[in-house]
């Protein structure tokens, strides 16, 4: 009975993937994959040559990202009797997710990596049963220093104050190497997507003409404040890479503008935004290419007018 339950759930997960792909459209997906492969082909080939164990790191990143956000643990616990069965199912699920990495390593003939990946996936499944998904209670520490005007920023920092502090402290390490600063900025750009995921209600928005630009200006202030010290330190210790530092900052503010614009271009008071837009992610990836931020900025400006129009139609 229990093995059929595992099979049922696994086939459902595969069906889900097929339905998601159906909803996106295969043509768009192929174009997206080709673009990604085109952008990262050289980086990927270098990575494959540098170290064959990169696949394990890729697996661990995927594993912890999924573990952090998966909300089905309670549901799964109610279905499977005992930790062992649940662990076995989760292990199989992670093994399926790791299949592309395993196949790639099989083609390259890295048998040890393949075995390590299979072992990690199964072990990850069993470990997962002990990692309880934290259910947020109504109790949180309020940080009154952050004004309510910056509620997106405020709510995220209040929900995870220590993680936020660690992320900021990571920026201070950039004096060691310019690469750390670039990684930190990329991390901030990606986090912006999470900050602005929360959609306020219609009454919280307080729309007025020029609302979007005012909000952007406000956030420029707080973003500058957050990045000030690490940026100064990086400038002092790596003054020869000044242009790269400025480009990284340009990317950050472009990312901020784009995220805000994307949020309000698709804003509706009827339903909460549940996921980061895939288009926004593509434009973030684009910024990694030298000069790519200009393409993102142009697209964000085009979207800005759409966002203004959207808000006007809702509030004017």
């Amino acid at each position: 009975m229990m093995s059929s339950k595992i099979l049922q759930l696994l086939s459902l997960r595969l069906l889900q993937s097929k339905r998601i792909l159906d909803s996106v459209g295969y043509l768009l997906l192929i174009v997206f994959c080709l673009v990604i492969v085109g952008i990262f082909a050289s980086a990927l080939s270098n990575l494959l040559l540098i170290n064959r164990w990169w696949a394990i790191i890729a697996f661990l990143v995927m594993y912890f990202s999924i573990e952090r956000y998966r909300s089905d643990k309670s549901f799964l616990r109610s279905i499977f009797i005992g930790q062992c069965r649940l662990g076995f199912f989760l292990g199989l699920e992670y093994l399926l997710l790791t299949t592309p990495l395993i196949v790639a390593q099989l083609i390259l003939g890295n048998w040890m990596v393949v075995l390590a990946l299979i072992g990690s996936a199964l072990l990850g499944g069993f470990t997962s049963t002990y990692l309880k998904h934290e259910i947020k209670s109504g109790v949180k520490t309020e940080l009154s220093q952050i004004p309510l005007d910056y509620f997106e920023f405020k709510f995220v920092v209040e929900s995870a104050p220590y993680t936020s502090l660690c992320i900021w402290l990571f920026g201070l390490l950039s004096y060691l190497h310019i690469g750390l600063y670039l990684i930190w900025i990329l991390l901030l750009i990606m986090l912006l997507q999470t900050f602005f995921l929360f959609q306020e209600s219609r009454d919280m928005l307080h729309w007025h003409p020029n609302f979007l630009m005012t909000k952007f200006k406000k956030y420029i202030g707080i973003t500058s404040l957050v990045t000030l010290l690490p940026t100064i330190m990086t400038l002092v210790f790596h003054s020869d890479s000044m242009l790269i530092i400025f480009y990284a900052l340009f990317c950050l503010f472009t990312g901020l503008f784009m995220t805000l614009v994307f949020k309000y271009a698709s804003y509706t008071p009827l339903r909460p935004m549940s996921q980061v837009s895939s288009i926004a992610s593509v434009f973030i990836i684009l910024m990694i290419i030298p000069g790519g931020a200009i393409i993102t900025l142009v697209y964000a400006i085009f979207k800005y007018y759409k966002a203004e129009k959207n808000l006007k139609s809702l509030y004017a």
Binding site: K5, Q8, L9, L12, R13, L15, Q16, R19, I20, S23, S71, D72, S74, F75, I79
Partner: peptide
């Protein structure tokens, strides 16, 4: 209640 995305009602019942 929790539901997986892209899941049919009948599939939910079968799993539970």
């Amino acid at each position: 209640p929790f539901f997986y995305p892209f899941m049919k009602g009948s599939e939910y019942i079968k799993i539970v």
